[in-house]
Simulated assay, not measured.
Amino acid sequence: MPQSLANLYVHLIFSTKERLPFLSPEVRPDLHAYLATVLTNLNSPAVLINSVEDHVHILFNMSRTVTLAQVVEEVKKSSSKWIKTQGPNLATFAWQAGYGGFSVSESNVPKVANYIRNQEEHHRVKTFQEEYREFLEKHKVPYDERYVWD
């Protein structure tokens, strides 16, 4: 086959370091726009980005020419630098060291997008840690609780 083609959707989840509530409602729209720009520059356009005070969910179409680790590194590095310029209360901002990346089939993109869209509603009854554990278990990702949180 002479052509290399791919259609890979990823649901990416990562939190602020120690799940500190840095992501106020005021900073979120600009953060989401910034994250979308970084992803576009990586040829991995965002389908939907949403966040709550301590973590972000991103659904994006991953480029066939970059790895997930490269996307995450650039998204987190660039956005961390940007957030620190958004006010004195954000000068100590940091993302957690890790992340969760979960594959999404084309047929499930609308369902995952709807889930991401309704983050505030989900987190009225569930913590980030509870949600994240459920994702790991649902996707059969083995993990050691001692090393998941920072």
Rank of each mutant, 00 (worst) to 15 (best):
N118V: 02
E106H: 12
E106P: 01
G101E: 07
F128E: 06
S107T: 09
R124S: 13
W95M: 09
G98E: 01
W95R: 03
R124H: 12
Q119Y: 08
Q129L: 11
S103C: 13
E106A: 15
S103N: 10
V109P: 11
Q129F: 01
T127E: 10
A97P: 00
N118T: 06
E120N: 14
V125D: 11
V125H: 11
I116R: 05
N114V: 00
A97H: 03
A113V: 05
S105A: 14
W95K: 07
E106Q: 14
S105T: 13
H122Q: 11
E131M: 06
N114R: 02
Q129S: 15
S105G: 11
E130M: 14
W95F: 01
Y99W: 01
P110L: 09
Q119W: 06
G98H: 02
R117V: 01
K126L: 14
S105Q: 10
E121I: 09
E121N: 11
V109W: 06
Y99C: 02
V112I: 15
S103P: 07
V109F: 08
R117Y: 14
W95I: 06
H122K: 05
S107Y: 02
Y115E: 14
S105M: 10
Y115M: 15
S105V: 07
G101T: 00
S103M: 05
F102W: 06
W95Q: 04
N118F: 12
Y99I: 07
Y115S: 13
V109G: 12
Y115I: 10
V104T: 00
N108S: 11
W95E: 08
H123E: 05
N118K: 14
E121Y: 04
N114H: 05
Q129W: 06
V104W: 00
T127I: 14
S105N: 08
Q119E: 09
W95T: 05
F128G: 05
N108D: 14
E106C: 08
P110M: 12
S103R: 09
V109S: 04
W95D: 05
N118W: 03
S107W: 02
H123K: 04
V109L: 12
V104Q: 00
Y115C: 12
H122F: 11
F128T: 03
Q96I: 06
H122D: 08
V125C: 01
S105D: 13
N114K: 03
E121P: 02
E130S: 12
Q129H: 06
Q119M: 15
R117T: 08
V104A: 02
V125A: 10
R117H: 15
H122N: 13
W95L: 12
V112R: 10
F128M: 12
V112G: 11
Y99E: 03
Q129M: 14
E131R: 02
H123V: 07
E106I: 09
S103I: 09
G98W: 00
V112D: 07
A97C: 02
S103L: 15
Q129K: 13
R117E: 15
N114Q: 09
R117G: 06
Y115N: 10
K126T: 09
H123I: 02
N118L: 14
S103E: 11
F102L: 13
S107D: 13
E121G: 08
N114M: 04
T127K: 10
Y115P: 01
E130P: 01
E131Y: 05
E131T: 07
T127D: 09
A113E: 13
E120C: 04
W95G: 06
H122C: 07
V112N: 11
A113Q: 12
E130K: 12
E106N: 09
V109D: 10
F128R: 04
Q96F: 10
F128N: 05
A97F: 05
A97Y: 06
W95S: 01
